[in-house]
Simulated assay, not measured.
Amino acid sequence: MKILGAMQNPDGSWRVEVVQRGAKVGYRLLRDGELEHEYMAIGTVEHILRHAGVDMAELELTEPWQPLAGPGAA
């Protein structure tokens, strides 16, 4: 699996990664450093984040290899 890009909310508690495995590209969602869901469509990501009170407009681009900031940081 290859991480093509990543974004997270300002406190780093939610992170969205664009991932590729073979020809398949999708999104995976991490909360406090723990994998929540993998290989979702962007609409599903938006729905989950909205339900959690996270505005997609607040997500900031981050380096794919950068560890999470915040409570889930290693």
Score class of each variant (00 low, 15 high):
L29D: 03
Y39V: 09
K24Q: 14
E46L: 04
V19F: 06
G22P: 00
W14H: 14
L49Q: 06
R31T: 10
V45F: 04
W65C: 06
L35W: 06
P64L: 03
K2I: 11
A41N: 11
P64T: 03
V25K: 09
G12L: 01
H47W: 08
T44I: 03
K2T: 14
K24C: 08
A73C: 09
V16K: 01
E60P: 03
N9W: 05
A57I: 08
G26C: 10
P64F: 01
R21E: 13
V18D: 05
T62Y: 02
I48W: 02
W14S: 04
A52R: 15
A74F: 12
Y39I: 11
M56D: 01
E34C: 10
T44H: 04
G70R: 03
R50Y: 12
A41P: 04
I42F: 09
L29E: 03
G12V: 00
R50S: 14
G70K: 01
G70H: 01
A52C: 13
E60T: 09
T62S: 09
D32K: 02
M56N: 02
L30R: 03
V54S: 01
A41G: 06
V54E: 06
W14Y: 14
T44Q: 12
G53A: 10
D55R: 11
V45C: 00
T62A: 11
V54H: 02
L68C: 09
V25T: 14
L49S: 02
E46V: 06
L68V: 10
A74H: 13
H37D: 14
L61C: 07
P67Q: 06
Y39L: 15
P67C: 01
D55K: 08
R15A: 00
D32P: 03
K24M: 12
A6T: 01
H37F: 11
L68E: 05
R31S: 11
R21W: 14
L4H: 04
E60I: 13
D11T: 10
M7I: 00
V54T: 06
G43Q: 03
E58A: 12
R31C: 13
D32E: 13
I48Y: 02
R28H: 09
L4R: 06
T62P: 00
L49T: 07
A23Y: 08
K2E: 13
M40A: 12
E34S: 14
L29H: 02
Y27W: 15
L59I: 06
R21S: 14
A6G: 03
Q8W: 03
A57P: 08
I42S: 09
V45S: 00
D55Y: 08
H47I: 04
Y27Q: 10
R28C: 08
E17C: 02
H51C: 11
G70T: 01
A23K: 13
T44V: 08
G5C: 07
L35M: 14
K24V: 09
Q20N: 10
Y39W: 13
T62M: 06
L4C: 07
G53Q: 07
L61R: 12
S13K: 03
P71E: 04
A41M: 12
L4W: 06
V18H: 07
